[in-house]
């Protein structure tokens, strides 16, 4: 664990404003964040708090922001292979088979190496039998697993997950949690996940980052020092979950007041 205390992702005074025709919306304001190498971090907040914007900026998919973001001490300039992204929708290309999708990021590698890597990661996510299927022929959970394989196959330095299991049913989601945890333990990739599911965050994360609503700021950072695999009904688990939920409600007090 030599690099476990090294900083993987470092965000300094990040501010992002969306300018529309009539008004300017500040999505993120002075966000400072350090995530260690190999850590699993979750960013939790209500919808519209800017957490997805934060993730997209780290992924290099948004530009025009103030502040600095460094991955392994290097400034982030646009999207790249070393920053894998899992979106809420699987975003598999419908005209490619599952194996072609998983190998989508390997076009520059020799064919033999590509085949071997695709096979290994298909096995990792349990989709070997569906290698030749098209995305339209498999279920949502399987498609999301294929998307995870596609993102991991390049051995990214960091994997960014944007509400990756939001579209799945509760049972499938719990299966995916343990599978993702297994993959994380195997691959030791730094993972940053955006979610609004507090239990999901507590189950998977070493650290949960709570964001406030508009403008998005970091409200609180809560470590989760529980042994893995975690028991969702253990008192310690529930205590952390309760702590987070309470913060949530404190945050949301004014969001749910209506003026008629």
């Amino acid at each position: 664990m030599s690099n476990s205390h090294q900083i993987g992702l470092e965000i300094n005074r990040l501010t992002k404003t969306f300018n529309t025709d009539r008004l300017a919306v500040t999505a993120l304001e002075n966000v400072d964040l350090k995530i260690r190498k190999g850590q699993f971090a979750s960013i939790v907040g209500t919808s519209g708090c800017g957490k997805t914007t934060l993730l997209r900026i780290v992924a290099g998919l948004e530009n025009d922001f103030d502040g600095s973001i460094e991955l392994d001490g290097k400034d982030i300039k646009g999207p790249s292979k070393d920053k894998g992204v899992i979106f809420q929708e699987h975003r598999l290309l419908p005209w490619l088979t599952i194996e072609e999708n998983v190998g989508f990021g390997l076009v520059s590698r020799p064919a033999a190496e590509r085949r071997e890597l695709v096979e290994r990661y298909l096995a990792l996510v349990g989709l070997k039998k569906f290698a030749k299927a098209y995305p339209a022929q498999i279920s949502g959970g399987m498609a999301q697993r294929a998307a995870i394989a596609r993102a991991l196959v390049n051995k990214p330095k960091i994997l960014l997950l944007d509400e990756p299991f939001g579209a799945l049913d509760a049972i499938t989601r719990m299966h995916m949690h343990s599978e993702l945890e297994k993959i994380w333990l195997d691959e030791k990739t730094t993972m940053v996940m955006v979610t609004h599911d507090v239990e999901e965050a507590v189950y998977l994360s070493d650290v949960v980052i709570l964001m406030s609503h508009r403008p998005g700021r970091i409200k609180k950072i809560i470590p989760v020092p529980l042994a893995r695999p975690r028991n969702r009904s253990h008192p310690d688990f529930l205590a952390i979950k309760r702590e987070l939920l309470e913060e949530f409600h404190l945050n949301n007090k004014d969001i749910f007041t209506y003026e008629i």
Binding site: P79, K81, G84, V85, R91, L93
Partner: peptide
């Protein structure tokens, strides 16, 4: 645009 973003993450050039 979603697919274009995926391609940009994997550093696709114009031809690819």
């Amino acid at each position: 645009k979603k697919y274009i973003e995926v391609a940009s993450i994997f550093e696709y050039n114009q031809a690819l």
